[in-house]
Design a protein around this nucleic acid. Sequence first.
RNA 1: GGAGGGGUUCCCGAGUGGCCAAAGGGGGCAGACUGUAAAUCUGUUGUCUCUGACUUCGAUGGUUCAAAUCCAUCUCCCUCCA
Length: 408
Amino acid sequence: MSNVFDTLKERGFIAQTTHEEEIHDLLAKEKVTFYVGFDPTADSLHIGHFLQLMAMSHMQKAGHRPIAILGGGTAMVGDPSGRSDMRQMLTREQIAANAECFKKQMSGLVDFSEGKALMEDNSDWLLNLKYVDFLREVGVHFSVNRMLTAECFKSRMEKGLTFIEFNYMLMQSYDFLVLFRKHNCRLQLGGDDQWANILGGADLIRRVEGKAAYGMTFNLLTTSEGKKMGKTQSGAIWLDAGKTPPYDFYQYWRNVDDSDVEKCLKLLTFLPMGQIRELSLLKDSRINEAKKVLAFEVTKLIHGEAEAIKARDAAESLFEKNTDSDSIPCITLNDHLSTDGINIIDLLHSTGIIPSKGEGRRLISQGGLYVNDIRIVDFDHLVNPDDFKEGCLLIRKGKKSFHKIVNK
RNA sequence: GGAGGGGUUCCCGAGUGGCCAAAGGGGGCAGACUGUAAAUCUGUUGUCUCUGACUUCGAUGGUUCAAAUCCAUCUCCCUCCA
C-alpha cells in the first residue's frame, strides 16, 4: 500500500506540515486518528469544505480514522483567519440548524458507519467551560506576543480585532487537546488559513501532555489568478442541490479556466493520476474533453451518478446538438396562458428568469434574449400558446443560461 | 469617559444647496472574437405604466421654492488620548 501522504502530496493537497518526515512515517506505520473542523456558519457546505472532505476520504481509504468536528462552539465566536472584518454573529439556533445540514452532506463522502469515522460537536465541551479555569489551564500556555506575530492577526491589527475573535485560536487549540485526550487524535488537518490555529493546538498538546501532535494544511482552492474558487456572480457554489442545482454545479466545472483543469482533477476527483496526466496533455480546444471529465466526476461525487448524467446530457444537448432536454431548469406557469398571449418581458419577470423588467429590456436591446432559438428584438413581443412546442417554451438568456417554461 | 474622523447606489470611492439616479474604478450582465476557456474590444448596470414618473446617499425629525449636501436628535464604525 502506498503511503497516503505521498498520494496527498502528489495530488497537490499539502501546503504546510509541522513535521514532514514524522507525519510521513506515522501514516505509514499505524492507523492514525485525525480531525478536521467545520464551523457551521452557513446552511450548506461549499467548495472549500469539499476539498477538506476529499482529503479526509483519501485518508480514510488508507485506513486512518477521521473525526469531523462541527464547530458549534467555535462558530459562536467566529474565526478571524482570512477575514478582513468581523464575522456576523450567529444565534445558537442558526448554528444548530446549520450543523444538521453539514452532517447530511458530509456522510456522502466520508463513511461514518461502524465507527470508521467520528463526528463531534465542540459545543459539547466549549460551552460549559468556566472562564477562569480555562484561562488557568489553557490561557497560560499562549504568548500574546507570539500570537500577534501570526499572519491572521497581523493583518487585522490595521482594521481592528475584537477580543472575542482573538480567543478563537485558544478555543480551536483546546479542541485539539480534548480530542487528543478523548480519542488519541494526533493529527489535525485544515485549510492553509488554519495554519496558526493548528500550530496552536499542536503546541498546546506538547506543553500540557508532553506528547507530540502534528498538523498539516492543504492548499486553498484558488484559480490561477489567485482568487478563491467556488465564487460566482450569484454567490458561492454550494454542495446543496437546493442552493446550487446540479446542472449549474456541472456547468461551473465545465467552465473553469484551462489552467485550473489539472489542479481540479487532482484535488476534486478520485481519478488515477495516470489518467489525469493524460487528460492534462490535451491542449487548445481539446482541453474541453478534460473539462467534461472534470465536471462529470465532481458532480457525480456530490450529487450522485444519476444527476451527473442528467447534467451532462442536458449540457450536451444544449451546446452540441441543439435539441431540447429534460434537465434544464424548468418552470411551470401557474395560470394557463390565454390565447391572447403574454408580453415576453412580463412572462420572464413573473417566472423570475429576470429580476426586473428594466433588465429584460436591456437584454432585448442588446440582443441577448432568444425564444425557441429566435432572437427577440421587440420589447412588445407577445408569446402565444402556439409558441409552446409540445407544451414547452425554450428561453435562452445570453449564451449559457437556458430555461424551459411549461404551460400546463 | 474625552477629542477628532466617518457611514453614498452590488463593492471601493468622488460628490458640501439646484446642472445628481449621483464622477471614476472594480464587479456583474449583454454583444463581437472564440473552444460553453482566457485575454481584448464595445455597450450596459435603481424601479416602473420608460422620451416621462417614482424611490435611493446610516435612521428620524426640521430649515428651504429646492437637501446626498444645511440644522437637531439617534445609531453604528474608525483613529488618538485615558
